[in-house]
Design a protein around this nucleic acid. Structure first.
Lengths: 331, 331
DNA sequence: CTGTTAGCGCTTTCAT
DNA sequence: ATGAAAGCGCTAACAG
């Protein structure tokens, strides 16, 4: 673990000035072929690596880096979204450093991120004050969750009107008894099941007759299958199901298949999210989809706005996005 | 777009020294509650943001950042792998900046990355010399592809012995006529179809009678289904299929289902990759899987080794990993 | 507890 | 074409 070689070492050995070294290494003008060659040779021989910190510091051109925080890369929703964010960031010439908080302390992860990036973008389960603290003064753009706290901006999805649309559309397509399979994710954090926000809207808009037809289970494929089975056991008359999300919905489609139930003939299944994965199964999953391209663009638009103010703390910027129904085959 | 506020401004306004400001902002010892409070107040009022470049530069503790390059986040194999790499990097306290080269010039993407990270890790389609140039002197750890070029290290998967195992195991399980559905990815880059390496091994180990039973198609779910149909049309006696990868294999499973063919009863289908997605379909996909956790660990072990030498150019480090068969239900 | 000072390693003028 | 010198904005070591 030898001493770090600096530009000075290269300059000294090559018998030139630091300026010459910099010009040689960065393909700048005002340098003769021979000195350039010599510098390059010495630099290679010495194994010189410019310090990226010093380099970025000295160069006035500061590139924007966004820290994208995500619960897990094993969840297709987040990877689908990451793909769009990555693409949008690339378009703007920004860097994105990603951190998955899965299985580790979210606050700790954020703190580590905070001195590598200019802004934090992503989903978070933390309460706003803690989130703000963990961000160490960096602005954050919270996805799919509202905020009015200064320095924490947000992009909210209007699930209420989305689910209203979904339920109404299901009735229009002939459903009489709509059930719901909800996620039990609240079990992880709290003690006891807490109905999801989505369930709340479902109950608000579904006809009274099937308002009780809600069962919850794990947010996995298997969980979706199991939960559907439980729902059907309690409410055999159910002819349409709204799932908490596409992962559970896909599980439900498979579960129905295993039970010999025709989808969508006997049972319509509608997911939420609009995963690209939904197209891969058969029948293709219908879904109340989020427009991930729009989310990415709007989130990075907020970042752009923040960058104009040197990422200073600004009053909360807030935008709202409507989900939209994507009818494929399962409903 | 006001002038950038520096630590000097804060110190001046607060009427303290820079040292005090630094101590206040970084929760260091040796500062009184009152000065700390005052500094924090002034700093907030002025909207001060420490320069992350200056900060990292001045602090001696240099955190390692790896640049992870991936073709597309819409490909489940890469996201599965990314999840493991992210996790392993987190374990070591390293940062990961990710770039998807999808739809953009890979060399350009690498160059942008190169001054934000210490090392490049990932898949690449570039020829080694161009890759090396694009990396701008950074070491690269090439995944699933060999290299003997200095500065380009590699982690190779031993597909030859993997496919040998796979073919033999299929025969053991009663297959008589094994076919293969290959990817036509070569069509994208070159003109004309070029058999994949995997196909080469397949032909090496399969019995002569079905050596011709290879059809190629798109590397998508739909492509897998179509290609299976074509294969069966040409070689109806086929009772087992090796797919180029899991995505095509999943498509094939669905295609078989649509054709009313029982899997694995009438037709065994074996994928390659071991995607987590394979567990989500029914029947669950059997696959010649890569051990992504092992890949992540070994790749980052190489990075660790490189870091000990300040990421200098070292003779190519090379490791080899064996795929392993994961028997689930489809074969 | 506080201020002063010396770097961190590179890029970019500015003379020459 | 080249070298000298002035920062970039912050942290850390040292005196007080």
């Amino acid at each position: 673990m030898a001493r770090k070689i600096t530009i000075n070492d290269v300059a000294a050995v090559a018998g030139v000035s630091r300026g010459a070294v910099t010009r040689a290494l960065n393909d700048k003008a005002d340098i003769s072929q021979e000195t350039k060659k010599k510098v390059l040779e010495v630099s290679a021989r010495l194994g010189y690596r410019p310090s990226r910190f010093a380099r970025n510091f000295a160069a006035r051109t500061k590139t924007i880096a966004i820290g994208y925080v995500v619960a897990s890369f094993r969840n297709p929703y987040y990877t689908d979204l990451a793909a769009d964010i990555l693409q949008e960031a690339k378009r703007r010439g920004w860097q994105v450093v990603i951190t998955a908080t899965e299985g580790m302390d979210e606050e700790e992860a954020l703190e580590l991120l905070s001195d590598q990036v200019d802004v934090i973008v992503g989903h978070s389960g933390l309460e706003l004050p803690r989130l703000k603290l963990a961000a160490r003064g960096l602005p954050v753009v919270l996805l799919e969750r509202g905020s009015r706290t200064a320095g924490i901006h947000s992009l909210e999805l209007d699930w209420r009107s989305g689910i209203k649309m979904a339920v109404e559309a299901l009735y229009e397509r002939g459903a009489r008894h709509i059930g719901m399979i909800d996620s039990d994710y609240s079990l992880r954090a709290n003690r006891g099941y807490v109905p999801s926000e989505r369930r709340g809207y479902f109950e608000e808009f579904v006809r009274p007759v099937s308002r009780q037809a809600v069962v919850w289970g794990m947010e996995t494929f298997a969980g979706g299958a199991d939960t559907l089975r439980a729902l059907l056991a309690d409410h055999p008359e159910t002819d349409a199901v709204l799932a908490f999300n596409d992962v559970m919905a896909i599980g439900a489609v498979q579960g129905a298949h295993a039970l010999g139930i025709d989808v969508p003939g006997r049972l319509k299944i509608l997911g939420v999210d609009g995963l690209s994965l939904g197209e891969a199964i058969s029948p293709k999953l219908s879904s109340l989809a989020t427009d991930r391209v729009a989310i990415s663009i709007q989130a990075l638009d907020i970042v752009e706005e923040l960058s104009k103010h040197q990422f200073r703390e600004l009053p909360s910027i807030h935008r709202r996005i409507e989900p939209k129904l994507v009818w494929r085959e399962s409903a």
